[in-house]
Design a protein around this nucleic acid. Structure first.
Length: 446
RNA sequence: GCCCCCAUGGUGUAACGGUUAGCACGCGAGAUUUUCAAUCUCGUAGCGCGAGUUCGACUCUCGCUGGGGGUACCA
């Protein structure tokens, strides 16, 4: 089995392309096949080396590798021209100057039948399509569909300037690379009979086809920029973990059984079956990805998560803060907003201060907490802090929450933080008291 | 216009000629609780419509509707 994956270098790896890549990869890896990477880079505008590199980066981030390639479509121009010439010589193709207008006119006078031109000796090269019979596409996912040849146009396989069009190029490249399985987006489904006709003309075997359902946004329309994250790069920047993204994307159009949503990479490779891929378009749901990401993130050990967060934020020395924040975040992006106050000092949230600190009894509670903490003998541990703060609440005759929230706002500057005991323990006595004093004095000054 | 494909709750899916139509996300409620989360429990919501076929259709057939794709000297 030889499978190939054809990304277009558009500057980002679209989630739909990532899924196509993933399914091809799972197919090859799960069945001991070879994966060939082919780059559709005939569009000079988009196919810059940077854009190609972007594809590589995204695939690497996801952990998707390949055995051969990349084959650059544009690098095979000579071979493509050779095939075109051969088809011409064999009379299976002809040159015609007919353009869209002629094609349209032909259809109007011929009851919508496919365009048939005549040899003119110049112009674009068109493949002769039979008038009889049908080309039947056998698709692992969609079953069989017969396309009547009479309805298909004599398709252009090379432009007047001799450059090949995509349909010819892929077919030639795939045939030369010995590709046996073509798994791609359903947007190519209707083009398949055309490509099969080219294969037939050049005597190449027909590969096994599998057309994946397209990906839609929440509004049911094709997934696009306005839906938010649409590329693997977007997801990485948003703080998602590659293993979660991979797992989630695998589930977009494919399900293993009635319950299992979590699959390791090895399990995916073993369990994935092209035949089980859904025929209906799937909607990319970031909420579910987020949930899944949280599950993966919480299962990481602290050192690993710290390493990822330090890479993500570009900071170091995060481990202690990470340890007490892990349960509260679902993406890497959520860490810094939650824990920056450890490093930056209290956040500047005037509303929170007003609401908690200046509420009736707020300052008294904070003063009480301060006293308890100041008296706390060494060692300054989480348990010791808890004992001291519980004691303070009891002494003041207040609910624990009434004491903890003012303290939280004093040290963190906001009402949301990791657990208060962990937070105070990590901050240390000196820093804690400094921040508390600052909060208590702030009012008097103004 | 023509050709083709698709259709289970808001979302991703499972099952199938006979089940109370399952699981997960989301959402709601409760438990827990120092905030926010996390966690646990319970709940919410679905077979697009209409004809057939059949003892029996979500499941098979046809039509309709809706959605999508293709129809380039784009890829």
């Amino acid at each position: 089995m030889r499978v190939r994956f054809p990304p277009s270098p558009t500057g980002a790896l679209h989630i739909g392309n990532a899924r196509t890549a993933l399914y091809n990869w799972l197919l090859a890896r799960g069945q001991g096949g070879q994966l060939v990477l082919r780059i559709e880079d005939t569009d000079r505008e988009r196919s810059t080396p940077e854009n190609v590199q972007t594809i590589f980066d995204a695939l690497e981030w996801l952990g998707i590798d390949w055995d051969e390639g990349p084959i650059h479509q544009s690098a095979n121009a000579e071979r493509h021209a050779e095939v075109v010439q051969q088809l011409l010589d064999e009379g299976k193709a002809y040159r015609s100057t007919a353009g869209p207008d002629e094609v349209k006119a032909f259809k109007e006078t011929n009851g919508n039948r496919g365009f048939r031109g005549t040899e003119e000796g110049s112009g674009a090269v068109r493949l002769r399509v039979p008038d009889e019979g049908a080309t039947v596409v056998r698709d692992v996912i969609r079953g069989e569909t017969a396309f009547e040849n009479a309805l298909l146009d004599d398709l252009v396989i090379a432009r007047a300037d001799g450059t090949p069009v995509y349909h010819l190029a892929v077919v030639v490249d795939d045939a030369d690379a010995g590709i046996t399985h073509v798994v791609r987006g359903a947007d190519h489904y209707s083009n398949t009979p055309k490509q099969m006709l080219i294969q037939e003309a050049m005597g190449a075997p027909t590969p096994v086809y599998g057309h994946l359902p397209l990906l839609h946004g929440p509004d049911g329309k094709k997934l696009s920029k306005r839906h938010g994250a649409t590329s693997v790069q977007d997801l990485r920047d948003a703080g998602y973990l590659p293993e979660a993204v991979l797992n989630y994307i695998a589930l977009l159009g494919w399900g293993y059984d009635e319950e299992t949503p979590f699959h390791s990479i090895a399990e995916l490779q073993e369990r994935f079956r092209l035949e089980r891929v859904s025929k209906a378009p799937a909607v990319f749901d970031e909420q579910k990805l987020r949930w899944m990401n949280g599950r993966y993130l919480r299962e990481l050990d602290v050192d690993e998560l710290t390493a990822r967060l330090e890479a993500y934020t570009g900071r170091s020395g995060l481990r202690d803060a990470v340890a007490i924040s892990q349960d509260k975040i679902s993406t890497l992006a959520e860490f810094w907003p939650l824990a920056h106050f450890f490093f930056d000092g209290p956040a500047d949230d005037a509303a929170a201060r007003e609401r908690v600190l200046e509420a009736p009894g707020g300052r008294e509670a904070l003063a009480g907490a301060r006293a308890a903490l100041e008296e706390l003998p060494e060692p300054w541990t989480e348990d010791a802090v808890q004992t001291a703060l519980d004691g303070a609440a009891e002494r003041l005759g207040l609910k624990r929450k009434q004491v903890f929230q003012p303290l939280r706002v004093a040290v963190a500057g906001t009402t949301v933080s990791p657990g208060i005991f962990e937070t105070i323990a990590l901050l240390g006595r000196g820093e804690t008291l400094t921040r508390v004093d600052h909060a208590l004095n702030g009012r008097r000054v103004s």
